[in-house]
């Protein structure tokens, strides 16, 4: 048998479960153990085939009570797209006011997730 076992630390929540993922010769997931919730299994399966991450950063605000507003990708994006996503985030400028949940950039860098504000910044 050429099954391969990968050890992962789950990052879905702060518990940090140690998960074992078994892959077959076709690199398909055949077994997952060590997770304590379904989210862990989901994470592990994705992590060994197409790892995904949420990106959080800030965007420059014009005319606001603060110079920047915090943002996140509304969903996960491929891990190898993080820097492309950052480059796209760095292109964005918004005018105050900005509110939590405002979409500041749709489908950021074409990676499949919108960029949304995670706090309010009022205009001055």
């Amino acid at each position: 048998m050429a099954n391969q076992i990968r050890e992962l630390t789950c990052i879905r929540c702060p518990m940090g479960c140690q998960i074992q993922v078994t892959l077959n010769e076709e690199k398909e997931v055949v077994n997952i153990t060590g997770n304590t919730c379904p989210r862990g299994a989901e994470y592990a399966a994705a992590e060994v085939t197409h790892p995904m991450r949420t990106v959080t950063s800030t965007v420059k605000v014009i005319g606001g009570e603060l110079p920047v507003v915090s943002v996140k990708t509304a969903g996960d994006i491929p891990k190898d797209g993080i820097m492309a996503c950052m480059a796209a985030i760095n292109q964005v400028q918004v005018k105050a006011p900005v509110h939590i949940g405002d979409v500041l950039l749709e489908n950021a860098a074409g990676l499949g997730a919108d960029l949304v504000a995670t706090r309010d910044v009022e205009a001055i």
Partner: peptide, 8 residues
């Protein structure tokens, strides 16, 4: 300023 680390 921040926001200049990586660019397209």
């Amino acid at each position: 300023e921040s926001g200049k680390g990586v660019s397209v």
